[in-house]
Simulated assay, not measured.
Amino acid sequence: MLGVELPPPPPPVANFVTHVREGDMLYLSGQGPREADGKLWTGKVGDNVDVGLAYQHARLVGINLLAVMKEALGDLSRVKRVVKVLGMVNAVPDFENHPQVINGCSDLFIEVFGEAGHHARSAVGFGSLPGNITVEIEAIVALRN
């Protein structure tokens, strides 16, 4: 898949599951920028993490979301379309480029799914995220019958 090898899906870090399927919809819990070896990228965007690096972290989160989709569905061809993405950026108070950061995930979804990867989205800033991760992203996906 575009030269991207999907890692095993990251396990939940608290009392929740990575996804819930309800009918023809798949709801994906928030994922962070976790490397396949378990390393988490941390820091504050706009302080010790710049937009370019945070974009790469958001792309990594997208890869982790794809890994959860594949585990849940067995095959990414079951994805009819990405419906909604919520991107959260661990940013300093005056940071204004949240959309450019979350584009890392959005661009990946469009690369993977083409037109079906285009989605509704929110990209917002937070004063903190779990474990001081740089970004967290969740998604809602429509499935083929």
Rank of each mutant, 00 (worst) to 15 (best):
V4N: 11
V4I: 13
E5W: 08
P7T: 01
P9T: 03
P9D: 03
P10W: 02
P12K: 11
V13F: 13
V13M: 13
A14V: 10
V17R: 12
V17W: 08
T18M: 15
T18F: 09
T18A: 14
H19Q: 04
V20N: 05
R21N: 06
R21D: 02
R21T: 00
G23P: 05
G23A: 05
G23R: 03
L26K: 00
S29E: 09
G30E: 06
Q31P: 06
Q31L: 14
G32A: 14
P33V: 09
P33Q: 08
P33C: 10
P33E: 09
R34F: 09
R34M: 14
R34C: 05
R34W: 13
E35V: 02
K39G: 07
L40W: 07
W41Y: 10
W41R: 13
W41L: 12
T42L: 14
T42N: 13
G43V: 04
K44L: 12
V45T: 15
V49H: 01
V51Q: 02
V51M: 03
V51H: 04
G52Q: 15
Y55A: 03
Q56T: 02
Q56Y: 01
H57D: 10
H57I: 08
R59L: 06
G62T: 02
I63T: 08
I63S: 04
N64C: 04
N64G: 05
N64R: 06
A67Y: 01
A67M: 01
M69S: 00
E71P: 06
E71V: 08
E71G: 10
A72M: 01
A72W: 00
L73T: 00
G74L: 07
L76I: 05
L76E: 06
R78Q: 14
V79P: 08
K80V: 15
K84R: 13
V85T: 14
V85S: 02
V85E: 00
V85L: 12
L86C: 10
L86R: 13
G87L: 07
D94L: 10
D94K: 06
F95P: 04
E96Q: 06
E96P: 01
N97S: 12
N97C: 10
H98Q: 05
P99G: 05
Q100R: 09
I102K: 00
C105S: 03
S106P: 01
D107W: 00
D107G: 03
D107I: 02
L108A: 02
I110V: 12
I110T: 09
E111I: 00
V112D: 15
F113Y: 14
F113K: 11
E115C: 11
E115W: 14
A116Y: 12
A120K: 05
A123D: 14
V124P: 00
V124Q: 09
G125P: 01
G125Q: 13
F126Y: 06
F126L: 08
G127P: 04
G127M: 03
S128K: 11
S128G: 11
I133K: 04
T134A: 15
T134R: 11
E136P: 07
I137K: 04
E138L: 04
E138G: 10
A139P: 02
V141N: 00
R144A: 10
